[in-house]
Design a protein around this nucleic acid. Structure first.
Lengths: 175, 175
DNA sequence: TTAGAGTAAGTAAGTACTCACATAATAATT
DNA sequence: AATTATTATGTGAGTACTTACTTACTCTAA
């Protein structure tokens, strides 16, 4: 991958996350990346292709992030790691941009990729089963719903205290 | 309010909720509403003004919806009514469009109006206090976070079973 | 020498918005 | 009551500008 191609991907990620996909023009991306507008179309065919490339890179990233949780055998730790993941995203500004884009795209283009979350949901179900919860499937699903709620607040509500919210909810899943 | 003005508001609500604010052009709205494009600007000054008018109508609607919950004195019922509200939104297709817009706009324009939810959060805090929960503030906040998570899934995940999710989570807040 | 990386200057189709003008409803004045 | 003046509602054709995308071209490295 050439430098300029990477510049385009970085600039697009940042702008899409900040302004949204439709509101970000290819000329804005080119300017930010320091390249000619035509180069975007040389490398990615069209604007959709550029988004696809970013999302594809993202999938790899998500896989790696999830792998650490999925391969954990201690049930209690699995649940804890999911909460830690949220705090981890909030701690890294690079990860924040990336995850914000994931959510923004979900709302703007209405493409909820359930399959992406499936392995995590399965790992959680298994963990709750081990801990003898009497509805492990729903318990796992609920936890992921809560994650979405937390993410939403974190990204959109300026003064949101994610740490205290995460720690409180963590306790709710302990007994 | 004239018929044509109302047509514009309805068409815009539907299109904004479906396609997003930026992605919806004023010409599309005019066509759907069956009016000339110029009339939009006569009535609402500009595209932002049109959105503002829709959002303002929405605020009144939210106030009415919340009032029923806030004036409930039975603590257990307050919590139950919040869950009922979510199911109510899912049951009415008209309410669905309206609430979907609220969320879409949040993400697209990144304006999270915390103040809108404040009275509801207060009522919930009070309810949890009455029920002797030992962190009623966080309990209330968590419930609203969960509502956001539920809304997100309902609007974006096609096969999401909101009824079973709501009923399961309802139980979690009972003891 | 040939393919990929890169650019500047285009393109047609849209974008939000304006303006001159027509008509309908309301108010004021005879 | 009848006429006039004034506003509010509505339109169609236009505006300047932006949009995603193309094309013809140059440069560079293998």
């Amino acid at each position: 991958m050439t430098d300029k191609k990477e510049n385009i991907l970085n600039a697009a990620l940042e702008l899409f996350a900040k302004e949204g996909f439709t509101a970000t023009s290819t000329s804005k991306i080119a300017k930010k990346a320091g390249v000619s507008e035509g180069l975007i179309f040389r490398h990615f065919k069209n604007k959709d292709g550029l988004l696809e490339a970013i999302l594809h890179e993202g999938e790899e990233r998500i896989k790696i992030l999830f792998a650490n949780i999925i391969f954990e055998t201690n049930a209690k730790k699995v649940i804890d790691l999911v909460f830690d993941m949220v705090l981890g995203i909030a701690a890294s500004s690079d990860a924040t941009d990336f995850w914000k884009l994931q959510y923004k795209i979900k709302w703007e283009l209405e493409m909820y990729a359930e399959s992406k979350m499936e392995p995590l949901e399965l790992a959680l179900t298994n963990a709750f089963k081990k801990l003898a919860f009497n509805n492990p499937e729903m318990e796992a699903r609920s936890l992921l719903i809560i994650m979405d709620g937390l993410a939403m607040r974190y990204f959109l509500q300026k003064d949101f205290d994610i740490n205290s919210a995460v720690n409180f909810l963590r306790e709710k899943f302990k007994q």
